[in-house]
Design a protein around this nucleic acid. Structure first.
Lengths: 104, 104
DNA sequence: GCTAGTCGTAAGTCGTAACTTACCGTTCGT
DNA sequence: ACGAACGGTAAGTTACGACTTACGACTAGC
């Protein structure tokens, strides 16, 4: 999932989709790559659960999947949590070797 | 920055670092790649502001940069915000065209 | 049923970046 | 001062994935 977000084009696609649902052709128009390329990127994003698609008439509307975004956010939050805890522990190891409240 | 996190090896490195500071050799021991490879990845992560390093004796300790993590989080939050707003607008466009409380 | 419009997929090319080995600089211990 | 440990950098190979063109499938309108 994080890996899928590594590509700049996919970031751009997801960025446009965050403004609302878009058909493939319209996405491709605003990007420096061909329409099939956009289709392939959309497939990747869909496989990892970051976008949803629905057929409407002759075109296919893609939009951001809130659930996928929630997953991404929770992962990052867990990561954030662990890092902060480790950060505080490190400080304690450095300065707190003698005291419990090193106020400077 | 998001692009830097695209590589699985870098994700693994950052994952270990989230448990606390680690020297390069120790990181390489727990990974299926050589030590120079880890060094190169660390350079990338450092360039985008995701890790910090400090020399201690003969080795170099790397750790997660809280500021970089904060940036990443804020970017994702902005994205999250926009997506939710677009999502709600879409619903209004779809169902709210006639009523304000479509209970079905 | 035919045409036009939109999109997904297949096949193939090409650039890049992830990785390796080899080498050199730096720091600590004796 | 010398040897050992640790790590960054250079050079080169290779695998992967991002992209293009070509084609087929599906839907809507006439």
């Amino acid at each position: 999932m994080m890996t899928a977000l590594g590509d700049p084009t996919r970031q751009a696609i997801l960025d446009r989709l965050s403004d609302g649902p878009r058909p493939v052709g319209e996405l491709a128009d605003g990007l420096p790559v061909s329409r099939p390329a956009v289709s392939q990127h959309l497939k990747v994003l869909k496989d990892v659960g970051l976008v949803l698609d629905r057929q409407v008439g002759t075109r296919r509307l893609y939009r951001v999947d809130p659930a996928g975004l929630a997953l991404l956010r929770s992962h990052l939050d867990q990561f954030w949590q662990r890092s902060l805890e480790a950060f505080e522990s490190t400080i304690e190891d450095q300065e707190g070797a003698s005291d419990d409240d090193p106020a400077d």
